[in-house]
Design a protein around this nucleic acid. Structure first.
Lengths: 243, 243
DNA sequence: GTCCTAACGTACTAGATCGTTCATTGAGTG
DNA sequence: CACTCAATGAACGATCTAGTACGTTAGGAC
C-alpha cells in the first residue's frame, strides 16, 4: 500500500515530489480562495488541508497574494483547456448563435467556482487579473467566433441588428452569469431557485431565444420610448404577419 | 462655529448625540464594507474614520457581523426610499416595460455600492440577507409592477411570449447588473469599458430593445436549435413581412 | 560511501485584530 | 444643586495570522 509508486493525489506518501506538492497546494488554494475570498482565506488553513506545511506554500509561492494570482491563473487555464473548441461553422447563423448561447450557459453552470473567482476579482477591481496578460488572448477566440457568426447572419439576412460581437458576448454572459452568481440573494428575495435543475432547460432556452430575437430584429418598431400611439396595433399586425 | 446646534454630519462636535454617533458609524461602515468586504474591513479602520471610537461601535452594534447586517439593511432601505414609485400605468405595455428596463438600468448605474454589497452577499451565500426578512417585501412591488404590464401587454396582443414577471425582472437585472458589477474583469479581458459615459445611452437602449423584442415574439420560429433548414428563409420572410 | 542541494518540517515572531475593562463625562431630572 | 445613567474614551488583552529562522532529510552524482 505504502509502496504504491503511482499513488493518486490523495493516497500515497510520495515523499520528495516537488511537482505533486506544488500541485496539491494550488488545488487546495483554489478551493479555499473560492470559498472564503482572499481576505477570508487563511494560509494556515490551506496548509492544514494539504499533506505538507505552510513552509512549502512560501517556498513555492512566496506570498499569499502570489498564491492567489497563481490560483486565479490555474483556474482560468484549466477552464479554458477543458472548453472543447466547438465547431458551429456547419450551423445556420441563427442556430449557431443559439448554440453559442447554450454552450455559454452550460459553461457557467458547470463552473460556479470560476464565477466566484471572477466576482472576487471585480471586487478587487481586477487588480490581480490585470497581471495575467495571457488571459486576454484566451478570450479573443470566443469573441471571434461570435463575430464570424454575426457576419454570416448579416450576409444571409437573418441578423439585421446593428451590434458587435463583444456586446453579443456580453449579453449572453450577463444572463448566464447572473443566474448562477446571484442565485442566493435572488432566491432569498424572490423565492425562486434559479439553479433548480427542473428550470435549467427553461433558462437555457431563454438565453437562446433572447439573443436570437434580439439579433433578428432591428428595433425600429420599438425604439421610440415616448411613442404613445401604435404599439398595440403594430404588435397585433406583427403577429398576424408571422402566421 | 463650535456652537452651531444644527451641525452637519461632518462639522460640529455635537457631543453626547447618540443618534448622530450611531448614524456616523453606520455611514462609515457602509463605505468600508463596500470597499473591502466583510473580512477585508477592519473595525479599527471604521472607528478611525468616525469622530468617535471603536468602543462606540460595540456599544451600538455589539459585533462586527451585526454592524455588517445593519449596514446591509441601511443601504437597502435608503436605496428603496430613494426609488421614486414611477408611474407607468399611462404608458402602452411596450413603452411601459421599456421604461422599467431603463429605470432599472439607471438604478444600477446610480448605485454601484449597492451592487457591491449584493455581490458580497452572494459570496456569503446570502447568509446575512436572509436575516432581513423585511427586504423581501421591498422587492415585491417591483415584480408586481412588471406583472401588471405583462397582463396588459397580453391583453393588447403585444406580448405573446410565455414568461412570468420574476423571469422578466431577472432578465432585465442580469444585463444591468453584469454591466456594472463585472466591468473590471470585462474591461481587462475584452478592452471595453462598459461604464464609459459615451456608451451609456447605447446600453440603456440595448436592454430596452432586448426585453421588448423578447416579449413581443413567441419563439416558435427559433425554438428548434437542431433545425437545419429554414432559419435564413424564415428570417428573410420575417423582414419582408415587417416592412 | 560521501557530498551536495532541492525539498521539507518545527517552532517561532512581530504585528494585527476583534472585543473588553474600567473609568469618566455630560445632559436631563427632581 | 445633587443625582443618575446614557454616552463616551483610553488603554488593554487574548488570539489570530502572515511570514521567517533554522535545522533536517532524501535522493542523485561521482
Amino acid at each position: 500500500m505504502d509502496a504504491d509508486p503511482i499513488s493518486s493525489a490523495e493516497a500515497g506518501p510520495a515523499r520528495r515530489d516537488a511537482e505533486r506538492t506544488r500541485a496539491e497546494i494550488l488545488e487546495v488554494a483554489v478551493s479555499e480562495f473560492c470559498e472564503h475570498g482572499f481576505d477570508g482565506t487563511r494560509v494556515d488553513a490551506i496548509a492544514a488541508k494539504t499533506r505538507t506545511t505552510k513552509r512549502m506554500i512560501y517556498y513555492y509561492f512566496s506570498s499569499k497574494e502570489q498564491l492567489y494570482v497563481a490560483a486565479l491563473e490555474f483556474v482560468y487555464a484549466s477552464i479554458r483547456s477543458a472548453e472543447q473548441e466547438v465547431d458551429v461553422a456547419h450551423l445556420e447563423p441563427v442556430a449557431a448563435i443559439r448554440r453559442i448561447a447554450e454552450l455559454t450557459f452550460d459553461h457557467h453552470e458547470a463552473h460556479p467556482d470560476f464565477l466566484r473567482l471572477i466576482t472576487m476579482e471585480n471586487m478587487h477591481r481586477a487588480r490581480h487579473i490585470r497581471q495575467l496578460s495571457s488571459l486576454v488572448s484566451m478570450n479573443t477566440p470566443a469573441v471571434d467566433r461570435i463575430a464570424t457568426i454575426l457576419e454570416r447572419g448579416r450576409a444571409s439576412g437573418d441578423f439585421v441588428r446593428k451590434i458587435d460581437a463583444v456586446d453579443v458576448h456580453m449579453l449572453i454572459s450577463s444572463f448566464c452569469f447572473f443566474r448562477v452568481a446571484n442565485q442566493h440573494t435572488f432566491g432569498a428575495l424572490f423565492h425562486r431557485n434559479l439553479t433548480d435543475v427542473a428550470l435549467a432547460d427553461h433558462y437555457r432556452a431563454m438565453v437562446g431565444d433572447l439573443v436570437v430575437e434580439y439579433l433578428t430584429s432591428d428595433g425600429d418598431r420599438t425604439a421610440p420610448t415616448v411613442a404613445l400611439a401604435g404599439p398595440a396595433t403594430r404588435g397585433a399586425a406583427r403577429r398576424r404577419a408571422r402566421r
